[in-house]
Design a protein around this nucleic acid. Structure first.
Lengths: 201, 201
DNA sequence: TAACTATACGGAGCGATGTTCCGCTTCGCA
DNA sequence: TGCGAAGCGGAACATCGCTCCGTATAGTTA
């Protein structure tokens, strides 16, 4: 596919005309912005103000918003690689593991580790906050099918109940991870483990 | 206890001097504000702007903030009765039910019903949002002990695993309820049910 | 090399929101 | 009836996400 970090959707919306390549400074700034955003997210959490990211990258607000139409798009771009990796791990685990339920559990662990290590990502994943639909949708669109595959395999093996949709499971796991990074008394991993245990028939 | 709806903490902070009673108009306004807030919360969700509540009550911003130092304090005051009722239901269920695990499950259902019917309450319950510590703390302080009692009874009866702290269970259940009111595809009740099932030894 | 134009940039500014501040009003007591 | 303290209203402040538009520059072309 297109290997450049494009914000949200393919750009070739209007007809077949091949899109003009971006100017050199624009490409440079996009990279700079992604790096700055990643650094700021680590330092201050995913909720960090857009202004901080712009300042860190040494660019103006306008620049950030031309490259990433929305705060959510920037977050998506920063974590796209890791989400893709997580999605790819699903089938691999299923193939490598003897029991589908074990594969499901391992895959969910992967997802939880990802969420828990990104300060505030889980919080921002919940749909309600306006403007974050794109973020929510991206995660769900990408991961729900994978989860569905694992869940279906486990259900067919008779290992788990079959009345739970992958969407619900994913959102449940995501929700359980909220706040795991700010309160040491709250161990999201363990709760997710309990949830996954509850899946068993 | 003190039957007046006091914002956050007992007011008699400074020494033993008995606090002067509030002026009549102040008491009236407090009631008006609580009613207005409850109505606005139902209509627009718990995230409704403070200005809307002030407008609905026909008072200025200053008035709201003198009675409730923070948006969170107002939310607490509005839902205090129901939270207390939920807390009181714990021991009753434990006494009435044959199996402690069943009592726990029923009690959690009560809590989930409460959360799910208040638009946006669950979202606002997560600690991270600054200024909402009070809300988070109130719910936890009030309900965690009750949950602990039920959990302990169930553990002692050998019905559930004993390595999960009540705080974690409560936060997990609360988190699972986030977004249940905005997305019909997400059934929080069922997920909580799965979680509670996972508690079983 | 020198114009010239599409592209990109910067940051002031807008609208929303939570919260604070302070001059004015009103209650309730003497 | 007067007066001080309690209470009130809402303008104003700080912080957000995001938009707009005048200016700068990359890259092309003569």
């Amino acid at each position: 596919m297109n290997d450049s970090e494009e914000p949200t959707s393919g750009r070739g919306a209007t007809g077949a005309g091949k899109a003009r390549p971006k100017r050199a400074d624009a490409r440079r700034n996009e990279k700079t912005l992604l790096d700055a955003a990643a650094a700021v997210f680590v330092a201050s959490g995913v909720d960090a103000p857009v202004r901080d990211i712009a300042a860190r990258a040494g660019v103006g607000m306008g620049t950030i918003y031309r490259h990433f139409p929305t705060r959510a798009d920037l977050i998506i771009a920063v974590y796209r690689h890791q989400v893709e990796a997580c999605a790819a791990a699903g089938p691999e685990l299923l193939a490598a593991s003897a029991s589908p339920h074990a594969a499901l559990a391992q895959w969910i662990n992967l997802f939880v580790d990802f969420l828990v290590t990104k300060h505030g990502l889980a919080s921002v994943l919940r749909s309600d906050e306006p403007g974050f639909d794109a973020l929510h949708s991206y995660f769900l669109d990408r991961l729900v099918p994978v989860c569905g595959q694992l869940l279906k395999a486990a259900a067919q093996a008779g290992e788990v109940r079959s009345d739970l949709r992958p969407l619900e499971l994913m959102r449940g796991v995501g929700n359980l991870c909220i706040g795991a990074d700010t309160d040491p008394r709250y161990d999201a991993r363990r709760l997710v483990e309990v949830l996954v245990a509850g899946l068993r028939k």
